[in-house]
Amino acid sequence: MSLHRFANPARFMRLSAALLPWCSAAAAALIAIGLYLALFVAPPDYQQGEAVRIMFVHVPSAWMASFVYALIAVASAVALIWRHPLADIAAQGAAPLGAGFTLLCLVTGSLWGERMWGTWWVWDARLTSVLVLFFLYLGYLALVNAFDDPGRGARAGAILALVGIVNLPIIKFSVDWWHTLHQPASVFRLGGPTIAAAMLWPLLVMAVGFMLFFFALLMIRMRTTLMAAKIRALRLAEIDRLAAARRPAAAS
């Protein structure tokens, strides 16, 4: 019987220790290459000029914002159904990172808007959806940290993540509907697959780089949580040991 349920996550620790250097190095290399391609190789857009280069950060962070939320929801489902301790740690480790990507997406979107439309904020359907997603992240983070018992926060957060993932398409749909009612479709279209290859490649390189960067950070965060839990378990064991040592002494 282990004193602590996180006491022996040895497999994850071994695996992540082996993967972490490779993952980090690949992320750094890909983001460096991606930035070089985006800033110096990709041509300026014939309409948007140099400002289009914001896209190479904006779009991957938007993808990551949705991807990380989906990952949190999957991890939460695993945590609720199978009570796998690593799933809780993964969900909580991923949430601030996802919120960070969402914020990055909002800030770059705002900068882009200032160049394109001459205003810092436009109630564009996509920006609005991302803004709502940002608030879902904030709600999750606030809920997870709102309880004295961290286990309680983890379980409440897991339920909220599932509620959020069900609501996300509904919110997205309603915001799109709202936007088409209130504003004509904006010029904010990438044009799907017709995007020039010279722009597509840097975008994909950046996207993969962001993904690896995220997983490297996630592994670091999870390892930190596990090590902190290990330290707490050792402290508890020490207290128990001292208490046990004192008991017969008091009796005699």
Partner: peptide, 30 residues
């Protein structure tokens, strides 16, 4: 139910619930 027993439950509740209210607001006003 989620914010039951949380610190600053009232503020937390608004943060959790208001984003989820957006669709109702949109279609109600619409």
């Amino acid at each position: 139910a989620l914010s039951l027993g949380a610190r600053r439950g009232g503020v937390l509740l608004s943060l959790l619930v208001l984003p989820l209210y957006i669709p109702v607001l949109i279609f109600g006003v619409g």
